[in-house]
Every structure is written in C-alpha cells, then in structure tokens.
Simulated scan of single mutants.
Amino acid sequence: MMDIREAHRRALHDFGTRVHAVRDEQWDQPTPCTDWDVRALVNHMVSENFWVPELLAGKTVDEVGDTFDRDLLGDEPVEVFDTSEAEATRAVAAEGVLDRTAHLSFGDVPAAEYLSELFADALIHSWDLSRAIGGNDRLDPELVEQCARWFSGVEEGYRGAGVIGPRAKIPPGADAQTKLLAAWGRA
C-alpha cells in the first residue's frame, strides 16, 4: 500500500482536475449524492480541506466551530478549491503528521485514520463529480485498490452510522472500481 499521505494527495489532485473541468452552466447539475448539486459537492470538499490544517494542528471540532459551515466558494469556486487543496496538502505533508491525533466529532482517531477517511472521500467524490459533469469517471486503479482494502474494514461502521446508503448490486464480471463504488452505495 502506498503512504496514506500520498494517496490523499493524489485523490485530492484528481478531484481538483475534475473541478477545473466544470463549465459555468454545470454548477447546479445534480450529482449521485442526491442532496448535493455540483456546487454543494465542491463546497463540501472545500470545507473538508479547510478543516484539515485545523484538525491536524490538534484543534477540536468545538474549537473550530461553524467557521466552514457555509458557502465557501463565492464567485471563484475553482480558485477557492485550489486554495483549499493547497492548504490541506501542505498540512498532510507536515513533519510528524502521522504521529498526531485528530479530534473528530465522533471521537479521537489517529491521524492516519483521519487521512484514510479524507482520501476515500476525495476518491469517491471524484467519481460523483465526473458523473455529474459528464466527464471521465475512471478512477486511478491504485487508489481504488488502496481504498477498497481500507474500506473493507470500516464499511459496516459507515453504513451503521448512516454515512453511506445500502450496498448497490454488483453486476457479473464487475471490475474493482465498480465493486468499490457499490460498497459505497453507488450504482
């Protein structure tokens, strides 16, 4: 398995590539995340990216508060995403980051686990964004493999917490990407 910091960087970069492909008229397109259009999905990722430096610096959710609970995209959504990506990537690459603890809403977790969650979110939402804008929805096979290995150990917890929907049906002969997406409730 590749280092989780590298997996996160690559998945976030791939998401960013798709953000740069969004045309002006596509920001209100629906996504496979039924509650979000393209703008809301990108805003979710921007918010998540801005949380990264805060949580990896040892802050709690209560200390950060509702700072990022709003539309962060403004009139320059692509530029705001780029800024958030750079900040998150810089925080993840910091010396000793994997020795830290992230204080999440549901409890304290090792930084590596937090980064695994971020990596998976970026990877799966890359597919969501591609589907919404009609782009290439093929994901990096190495990242798919790494995510599938990690997710197999946490899938039931995610489902039990209501974070993901029911597992989708897997067609015969499905590839690794299709199986991973089905585990995340995507058909």
Rank of each mutant, 00 (worst) to 15 (best):
D66T: 09
A120R: 10
I124G: 00
V154G: 01
V61Q: 09
L104I: 10
L55D: 00
R70N: 07
T83W: 11
F81K: 11
S47R: 11
G96W: 02
F119K: 08
V38D: 00
N49E: 07
L123P: 00
N49H: 05
H44V: 01
G135T: 08
V92M: 13
L123W: 00
Q29H: 14
R23H: 12
S130V: 06
K59G: 04
E95Y: 02
L55G: 01
R131T: 14
T67C: 05
G153P: 05
A148G: 07
D108R: 12
F151I: 05
L139N: 00
E76W: 05
C147L: 10
V38T: 02
W150Y: 14
D24M: 13
D35S: 15
L104F: 09
Y114I: 05
D128G: 03
G135C: 06
R23G: 08
H125L: 03
A132Y: 01
Q146R: 09
S126F: 02
E145Q: 11
E155Q: 14
A132F: 01
R90H: 14
A86W: 11
A40M: 09
V64L: 07
R70Y: 06
W27A: 04
R23W: 06
A112H: 08
E95R: 13
G96L: 08
T89F: 10
R70D: 07
G153D: 13
H125V: 04
H125Q: 04
G96K: 12
A57I: 08
F119T: 06
G135L: 03
D137P: 07
E48L: 11
V64A: 08
V78C: 12
S130P: 06
A102S: 06
V61M: 14
E54S: 07
P110V: 12
V46L: 08
G58I: 02
A21D: 13
A94K: 05
L115N: 02
E117N: 15
R131F: 10
A91N: 08
A112Y: 04
R131N: 10
V80H: 01
L73D: 04
T60H: 07
P77M: 06
Q29L: 13
A112S: 15
A88W: 00
E117Q: 15
D62M: 11
L98R: 08
F119D: 04
D71S: 09
P53G: 03
P110W: 07
E48F: 01
T101L: 06
G58W: 03
D24I: 12
A120P: 00
S47D: 07
V109N: 04
D28K: 14
D137T: 10
V97C: 07
E87W: 07
D99F: 03
D140I: 06
E117L: 15
D99G: 13
F151L: 03
V78Q: 14
R90G: 12
E48K: 11
A102N: 01
E48R: 08
G134L: 04
D28M: 12
R39G: 07
L118G: 13
P110G: 08
T89M: 11
